[in-house]
Design a protein around this nucleic acid. Sequence first.
RNA 1: CGAGAGGUCCGGGCGGCCGCCGCGGGGAUUCGUCCCCGGGGAGGAAAGUCCGGGCUCCGCGGGCCAGGGUGGUUGCUAACGAAAACCGGCCGCGAGGCCAGGGAAAGUGCCACAGAGAACAGACCGCCUAAGCGCGGGGCUCGCCCCGCGCCGGCAAGGGUGAAACGGUGCGGUAAGAGCGCACCGCGGCUCCUGGUGACAGGGCCGGCACGGCAAACCCCACCCGGAGAAAGACCAAAUAGGGGAGCAUAUGGCGAUGGCCCGCGUCGGCUCCCGGGUAGGUCGUUCGAGGUCGGGCGCGAGCUCGACCCUAGAGAAAUGGUCGCCGCCCCCCGUUGGGGGGAUACAGAACCCGGCUUACAGGACCUCUCGCACC
RNA 2: CGGGGCGUGGCGCAGCAUGGCUAGCGCGCUGCAAUGGGGUUGCAGAGGUCGGAGGUUCGAAUCCUCUCGCCCCGA
Length: 138
Amino acid sequence: MSPAKDTEPARSRLRAAEHLKRTGDFRHVYRNGNRARGEWMTVAACENGLDRTRLGLSVGRVAWRRAVRRNRVRRIFREAFRLERAALPNGVDLVLIAVPGSAPDLDSARQELVKLANKAWRRYRRKIEERGREASET
RNA sequence: CGAGAGGUCCGGGCGGCCGCCGCGGGGAUUCGUCCCCGGGGAGGAAAGUCCGGGCUCCGCGGGCCAGGGUGGUUGCUAACGAAAACCGGCCGCGAGGCCAGGGAAAGUGCCACAGAGAACAGACCGCCUAAGCGCGGGGCUCGCCCCGCGCCGGCAAGGGUGAAACGGUGCGGUAAGAGCGCACCGCGGCUCCUGGUGACAGGGCCGGCACGGCAAACCCCACCCGGAGAAAGACCAAAUAGGGGAGCAUAUGGCGAUGGCCCGCGUCGGCUCCCGGGUAGGUCGUUCGAGGUCGGGCGCGAGCUCGACCCUAGAGAAAUGGUCGCCGCCCCCCGUUGGGGGGAUACAGAACCCGGCUUACAGGACCUCUCGCACC
RNA sequence: CGGGGCGUGGCGCAGCAUGGCUAGCGCGCUGCAAUGGGGUUGCAGAGGUCGGAGGUUCGAAUCCUCUCGCCCCGA
């Protein structure tokens, strides 16, 4: 099913709670999470032990020298996250790494975010299950 | 009407819906935060970081040197290498534009190629044969004179080379010439005069000219510059490790410390409490300022000054967004009276602040001036 | 925020502190020779606004100023 159509419910996002800010949080996702790559972004997903999903953005300065372009990509990703929150797994930290030089639009970013987030999340769950089995076998 | 010069300003508008970041008020709270209402939320360049300052910390007796910067004058400024007015030079018919624009008689160095000669220069072609010497011819009043050639020489006008050749034009002068002489122009000098705050300008007198260019070559002179930068810096302050102090315990121990043993002391290790430094994290710095807008006064101007009014983003893995509708501006097509359809709407995003500079930019508005043509 | 470096034929580099000689070298490219054909080789040859704009100078790739793009380092 395509992203939930614009039935326009009120969905405010709590910056402080749902936005990754600390270097430690980012490093945790990079080190322990799993990734899925698409046309506009690479999504890294990792369990966070909370009852909500948090968003982290990585938009490199090398990819776009002009700040306007970087802000544009950030805003599109953030808006996509806001609108598609219901279709995303819960209790997960997601880090969106922008593909250098790309120019995503909102609709395709929404579709890709949902697809890649769930893909990365499935990979993470499978990894955890395998580790659990190995641990129980030992 | 055409071509052009200088300058100022703007850089989409309105309204829904869903969101984001501060601020104020109210409410809820498990003190993490959440909800409601009100109001604010990118630029002319916020950019590049090329200059200058404020601010903060560090350093600091003074002087000299090194290093860097600036370079006509006078004003302006917090300050500047920016900008202003003026002076000088160059360019343009003109409005105007451009100029790192001190010193080359303090020293060192460089000036390729061409050319005879390139720095207190030089004679290739060329011009001359007056003086001196020699030869030939002629004349003669036998002293010499005239003509031609050569030697010794003279000259730097003309040709030619070059980016540059020891000033230009004219007249005189001469064997030919040359500032050799003179006039004008240029150049240099002066304890001269006049005007100007001054750079300088105009004039006077003196000098026949002595002084090529390059200091964005080294350099000399004058003036300016302490260093680092908001990750500056100030404060609060975990966990863990370590430091200092006090007390306790020294039942066992190591070391000071011996051939061995005992007592006592110190110290290390143990426990309790206290103190200070730093890290994670947090708060401040952080937005009221050389501040804007309007008006008055002074000044040619940069600018100064007085009064009234205004408060104008403050994030921190970093807000200012998404979407829909209507309109404006520009372009294209159909229709060409009103309309219909399509496209385009730039450059670019605050991170301590301010004064300049530079660069990017769809499109647009306005002011002043110059030249040419036509008409009144 | 602060500091440093690079830009020269299609590619990789030299030349720049001491301005002037033809902007040089390797690879590549084109033509010819050699071969049945190709490679190798040999001989010719083309190709450069010295990133851009001003300035200094008689003369600038070289010196100065501004500017564009790229790369690196420190906190």
